[in-house]
């Protein structure tokens, strides 16, 4: 067991946890915005997948990570636009539309991958990192934590920014009202549908960005179905965080650890079947749900389309 405590093991565990956790964090924060405003965005997995594909394809053809990330976010945003049109404006069933978007994203990206990349499986070069002066030279954790892609730091800053938006701004109040008491928001003269529409778009952009991070930085390539349920885990994170962005961050790191355990254990020379490892995050969600069942919170108007004047 002493092999488990080596520098290489801890370094690769932290490194992997952050790599796996950042997409969950971005998508989870995004989903939180939607949920707060009263829209259950089941299509998040599809938005991530479109983001993953578009991010990779664009970064590959333009050889630029920045443009790639932007494309990934925009692909998620475009998907969210469709979702918002159908579910917010036209009040369609959010679950049916969400499943349809996820299925469509799975099929379409796998199809595009088949015709574009399945013969050559191109890879992106290793993503550029931005070492934080001083901190990145720390032993063991320095390289794993403070010598990362710019998006990693931005995602963590975003968490803090969202805490501020939720707690200190009118925008945060509006979001909360759209989910808790849409009629009150309407009476205050703010458009419920407009607020929800904007919230869904934010979710799409962040989900797409998370997907793009997965393909561009995490894997360096795009594979069909590569998000593998990350979107759904992000939905759970948002649900359990009860509207607090910091809890999404903590949850994302915990899930990142359980996802990266496989690679880290292999570094340490312990061999466990990958299927057992793949069960870990989902088993953890179920366990968390059972233990904290009473504490998960969803806004009262979640999933219910808003019609003015209806009770």
């Amino acid at each position: 067991m002493s092999a488990l405590l080596t520098e290489a093991f801890i370094g690769s565990l932290i490194f992997g946890a952050l790599t796996a956790g950042i997409p969950l964090l971005l998508a989870g924060l995004g989903e939180q915005i939607s949920e707060k405003a009263g829209v259950l965005n089941i299509g998040l997995e599809g938005m991530m997948l479109f983001g993953a594909y578009a991010g990779f394809a664009v970064a590959y053809s333009y050889s630029s990570f920045t443009i790639g990330f932007l494309a990934g976010g925009l692909a998620g945003l475009a998907t969210a636009c469709l979702m918002a049109l159908l579910c917010v404006v036209w009040s369609m069933n959010q679950i049916v539309v969400g499943i349809a978007l996820t299925l469509g994203a799975e099929g379409l990206t796998a199809l595009l991958h088949h015709f574009q990349f399945s013969r050559s499986y191109p890879r992106l070069p290793k993503a550029e990192t931005l070492p934080l002066p001083g901190l990145s030279e720390l032993p063991v954790v320095g390289g794993a934590l403070f010598d990362r892609n710019l998006l990693v730091y931005l995602a963590i800053l975003l968490t803090v920014f969202m805490v501020w938006v939720f707690n200190r701004t009118q925008l945060g109040l509006n979001l909360q009202a759209a989910g808790d008491k849409p009629a009150a928001l309407d009476a205050a003269g703010v458009s419920v549908k407009g607020t929800r529409f904007a919230a869904v778009l934010c979710t799409g952009f962040l989900g797409g960005l998370g997907g793009a991070y997965m393909s561009m930085v995490g894997g360096g390539l795009f594979l069909p179905f590569m998000t593998g349920g990350a979107g759904f885990i992000a939905i759970v994170l948002a649900m359990l965080a009860r509207g607090h962005p910091l809890w999404v961050l903590i949850g994302a790191v915990l899930f990142g650890v359980s996802l990266s355990l496989a690679t880290a254990l292999q570094v340490a020379g312990v061999n466990i079947p990958t299927d057992v490892i793949q069960m870990l995050p989902f088993a953890m969600v179920i366990l968390v749900l059972i233990i904290f069942a009473r504490h998960s919170y969803l806004p009262p108007a979640l999933g219910i389309p808003y019609h003015r004047g209806e009770r």
């Binding site: 369609m92 499943i99 299925l103 469509g104 799975e106 099929g107 379409l108 796998a110 199809l111």
Partner: peptide, 21 residues
């Protein structure tokens, strides 16, 4: 590839939702 059938199902579902609306 059979992925195309997935896309068809998704389209079917979306158009079904639209006609319903």
């Amino acid at each position: 590839p059979t992925f195309f059938v997935l896309v068809l199902v998704a389209l079917l579902m979306l158009f079904f939702a639209v006609t319903e609306f």
